[in-house]
Design a binder for these strands. Sequence first.
DNA 1: CTGAAAGCGCTTACAG
DNA 2: CTGAAAGCGCTTACAG
Lengths: 318, 318
Amino acid sequence: MNIKEIAKLANVSVATVSRVINNSNSVKESTKIKVLKVISDHNYKPDAIAKSLRKKSTGIYSIIFSVNTDKIFEADYSQELVQGALSYFSKHELKLIVDTHGNQKDLINYYKSIIDSKIVDGFVILDLRENDPRIDFLNSENFPYIVIGRNSKNNFNYIDSDNESGAFTAIEHLYQKNCKNILHIAGNKNNPVVDKRIEGSLKASKLHNINMDILYSDFSEEKAFEIYLKNKEKYDGMFFESDKMAIKILNEIKKPEIPMIGFDNIMLSKYFDLTTINQNIFEIGYNAAKNLHKLSQGQKINSIIIPTDLIERGSTNL
Amino acid sequence: MNIKEIAKLANVSVATVSRVINNSNSVKESTKIKVLKVISDHNYKPDAIAKSLRKKSTGIYSIIFSVNTDKIFEADYSQELVQGALSYFSKHELKLIVDTHGNQKDLINYYKSIIDSKIVDGFVILDLRENDPRIDFLNSENFPYIVIGRNSKNNFNYIDSDNESGAFTAIEHLYQKNCKNILHIAGNKNNPVVDKRIEGSLKASKLHNINMDILYSDFSEEKAFEIYLKNKEKYDGMFFESDKMAIKILNEIKKPEIPMIGFDNIMLSKYFDLTTINQNIFEIGYNAAKNLHKLSQGQKINSIIIPTDLIERGSTNL
DNA sequence: CTGAAAGCGCTTACAG
DNA sequence: CTGAAAGCGCTTACAG
């Protein structure tokens, strides 16, 4: 069943059927009703591929995980992000291709080949680096994309967590739990996310006149554990920039010895009764999809910062 | 840059360019070289949508999660499955649309609309039910699909875990840990997966002359905990049909009082030091993708049973 | 081994 | 308000 057959059955031209399907307003009401009846009687559904070829747009978007295929969804992060995006896309009859590409070397070529194949209308970009070749490439191609996260350039549209206020809240929460001497165990240097968090924690420590030191762990669970062991006597509270680091320690020591707060609110954190800063990753994914959709339709959009919130649990109530 | 421009630049017809692209063997070597040079010089990549329209096939597959959008990937299961499938698809330049549909009521219409829109070449079917309307529908449409799991009809191609031998191994492992009086906490009745596991556990208990009882928990963590409390004195070993149930108990009692073994090997099980039966879900996803690809190309395929394996941890080494 | 031409199923300017 | 026709970018039988 195609548009030609429908046209014949309804005694109109294919052009008219097309106008009815696409709700063009220049169709006489009686014609429209007649055509719609034939369409519904025959359960006709237009061929999306043929439509895409004409319209130069498919309604399909893509997110490419640039990691070894083995561990795409290792972080809860990716799952929730995809869920959020799917929530928007499915509401709007759009589709999402989830894809992987392992080799950093020819990543740009991979993006290029997908653009050239005309299969997708836009990308969600993950794992942004400070100097990310994908940005320059996509900008030069003038191809729609939304970045999850920011860097110091921000010559792109992004959706990001409010890392600064998240870290601010973490330190303030420790302060409210009577910590006056806090260790902030940060991720790695030259990481825009980490920099934002440090801005936030410094702001809170200054505001409340708290002594706070910062050490870098590179997000390594082992390194974090070493730092913990070496410093647990010197501080009366610790802020970890990832739940995973805090959980590594809780898993070793069983009961927290000083108040500890994490970041991310991964699934495990509930089991370890870890107080943490929740990133609303679902929201991030949802808004990334929404802005990408708008962008690919030529609408003007603004980057969005999604608030974080405090999840208070036992690790700061000793 | 399209096929017409390439043809002009190479001084051949578009038909010849097409033949070169698709490796048709009836092209003179020198022509082929000439055309390939122009293609590579201009970084030409064929329009996949136009190709799809002609070939009636897109190289795109879909997996539809029939749950509330909120919790698609709640189970580790779904993530690993998708990873496995992506591993195959990306190797073969195929794409996977991850999709969701909440409303059971018009699920068949949703499948139908996707088939009619011609966007995908096949489906991976999840959450199979004993009487699953999707099966009858897809069979009647003669549309390619692969089912994850089995039911008692099996009028379809499937990939499934070896639940029977998994349960057999679980009981045998408890037996080797000197359990002679075992409780098998099963899922729900009329569930093909659960039935297979019961077959397996009965086989092992008969073989080794172990006393074994079976109680149904409906996979409820609370119910499992009640069953545990009521029965922990009566048995010297327990087999839980899901890690989640066993972990609920370990989380309450902290240290196992009798040997306990789970099923699934979810991420949490490592943290709770739970011995469990690992399903090779990545393998299941990979093989589902592979068979779906073959099937949609008209090749003959066979259903596959993927072996499970024992992950021995502390909960059976007290 | 190669080309001219038809056609996949749509949409959309153009004309009336 | 509607239709005839062109065209999106490919592939493939057909003919030579």
